[in-house]
Structures are given as C-alpha cells and as structure tokens.
Simulated assay, not measured.
Amino acid sequence: MDLESHRFISYFLPDQRPELCHSATIEKFPPGTVIFEENEKPDALYLVLDGKIEFSKRGGLGQYQNVAWAEENDFFGEFGVLDGQPRSARAVTCTSATIAKIPRDRLMDILERSPGKVVLQLFHHIIHYLRLTTEQYVNQMVHKHKMMAVGEMANTIIHDLKSPFTGISLANSMLKDLHQDEETQEWCNLIQAQITQMVVMTEEILEFTRGKATLNQKTFNLGESLEKFQRLNFIYWNQHNINFILRCDNIILNGDENKLMRVWQNLVGNAVEALDEQGGQIVLIAAKLGQDALIKISDSGPGIPEAIQSRLFDPFVTYGKRGGTGLGTAIALSIVEAHGGDITFESQAGKGTTFYIRLPLC
C-alpha cells in the first residue's frame, strides 16, 4: 500500500497529512532484520506498508518470547514516541517488509498542533491494540503451559510403559517360537506391531511438545504399509460397524513409515469416533499425482463444525469425540510437513469429511 492511504495518516486532518508524509522516510527490509531492540531509546514511529513484523521480549534464559505482530496498515513504536521511555520489546521483520519511519520530534510537533479529535482517535487505537496484545500473550502462555504439561505426561508414560512393553514383547516372542502355525504367527505379528505403534505414539507426543519431529526415513511401499495399517485395525473397525475401503496404486515413498502410520491412525481414528456407534463408511485412496502421492481419506460422518474448521490443525482443538486431547490433527500436520507435504480438507454438515494428504514421491 502507499503511505498516503495508511490508516495512521487518515487519523489526521487533511491539511496535516502532506506534512506527515513529507516527514516520513520509506525503507525496505529483508526478513530477519531487527528494526529496534528492547530498551533502545525511541526515535521514531513506524508504519507498515507491507510485510509482517514480530515483537518479542527477552526471557529469563536469554530467549525471546513472542508477544505480538504487526502487518500491513498497522503501526508500531507509538508508546516510546508518546512517553519517551525505552522500547518495551524488540521488533524484527518476519518477511520482507516496507516501512515508513516518522521521526519522533516531527510527529510530536504535529500532535501538539492537532485538535482533540485526532488525539482521541490515536488513544482509541492504542487501547484496542493493548487489548489484542494482552489476549495474544495470554493465549500463548496458556498454550505453552499446556504443552509443558502434556510433555511431562508423555515422558512419564514412556518411562512407566517400558517395563510392561518389554515383558509383552518377550512373551510374544516365546509364543511365536512355541507355535509355528500360520494363524498364531499372524496374531503374534499383530501384537508386536501394536506394541510398536503404542511406543511410537507416546514418543510422537513428546516430540511434538518439544517442537521437533525426528524422522527415520527409508524407502517403502505405501500400498503394503496401508494394508498393514488395515490389518492392525480391522477388529476395532468391525466393533464399530465401519466399512473400510482401501485402494492404492503402486507407490514408493521415502519417509518414516511408523510416523506416517500414525497420520493414518489419527485421521481415520477421528472419523471412526465421529461416526460414533452408528457405523458408516471410510474410504482411503492413494494415487500418484505428478511428482506427489495424493492420499484421500473420506468418511460418511456428520462433518466438522464450521466453528472450528479454521482452527482444526491447532493443538487442543477437537470435535465429535467424547474424549481426547485435540492433538491428533496437529501431530498429523507436523509429521506430513516434516516429510515436505501438506494436508487440506473439505467438510459438509451431514455429508462427511475428506482429508487430502500430499507427499512427495521417492
């Protein structure tokens, strides 16, 4: 946008606006540029013409905590300009940004000559901005403490389950050695696969709370992996009257098979719970699409409520379930993005939901 149409300029009287624009200098900044540091002496007001700016404060361990953002048509630095106190936060460009800078002494001179209406408009903006900033900061703190609590819980679960998992695995191995018939071998393989999935599940939650996803990548056949996923879950689906349909092309991927298995588990598991005890149909189709594999997971459920569709992949957002942490879709997204892919979805009330997962081919 151009400087003359910026919201801050519009607060002033028509005969003051050219003077403000003439006082400003416009600069372009690459991503990661520090506009000013916390505790710096304020020397100007900044008007964002395009791009995004992040504000953060230094914490006790020297790390910065995000507290607010500014985007096109916003302005920042007004607190230091008005009271002359040091900057209360650091401002850094998140993207390439174009910013107009109005020197403090020129702005204060214009404000002193401005009528009360102009001052009231600025005062109204400052109050509104403080409310938004406070809400953002509180939400971030709540989210941080939730993630810490979930991380501690996951760490405890992993520690407590190591011994029983080891015992089950040893007993399972003994059964395989004692009974060589095909049916027993298949059931023992199923038990071992479920143990592996439970371990992976808790480790994924722990990784997610720490903000990282470690991939153990290797080449594997997606069709064979999805058939394994179907075998692992067919008893559970039958109990819930689910008609599961699988169709998959011959697709080779390079990725972490166990973690991608968790993606299918989270999304299909959500669909099963949304269908509740009434049952229904879930269709999983995987096909090649250019240089990618496209996996579609469709259900005949009630659909995702519109109120949460825009936040579906945020942590602690859940729907259609009697219980749950609301981390399933957030973890699924983090795993797919770690593989260089993406997830989107379509949902209609009463007609069901379809998730689209795109993964790069090997």
Rank of each mutant, 00 (worst) to 15 (best):
R311S: 12
T134G: 15
E182T: 02
I195M: 08
I102T: 09
I251W: 00
D160G: 02
F36C: 07
G290S: 10
I157W: 08
R17I: 08
H124K: 13
N254F: 11
V81G: 06
Y319Q: 11
F79N: 10
T202E: 07
V34T: 12
K218I: 06
L215P: 10
E152L: 12
R87Q: 15
F36H: 05
R113Q: 15
F244Q: 04
A332K: 00
L222Y: 09
N270L: 10
G352A: 02
L253N: 02
I26P: 13
L20G: 08
P115Y: 05
N243G: 09
R247I: 13
I235T: 07
S169N: 08
Y46K: 03
I126Y: 12
D181V: 02
S347E: 09
Y356R: 05
I282E: 13
Q309G: 08
F79I: 14
T93V: 10
L13C: 07
Y236S: 08
L3A: 01
E135M: 13
Y11H: 09
D181S: 00
A338R: 03
T156F: 14
P315E: 00
T325F: 12
E257W: 03
V138I: 15
F313C: 04
H339E: 11
S96F: 06
G211N: 03
C248R: 00
A171F: 13
T344L: 03
H125C: 11
L267F: 01
K218V: 11
L289K: 13
P103M: 04
L61D: 15
V272M: 08
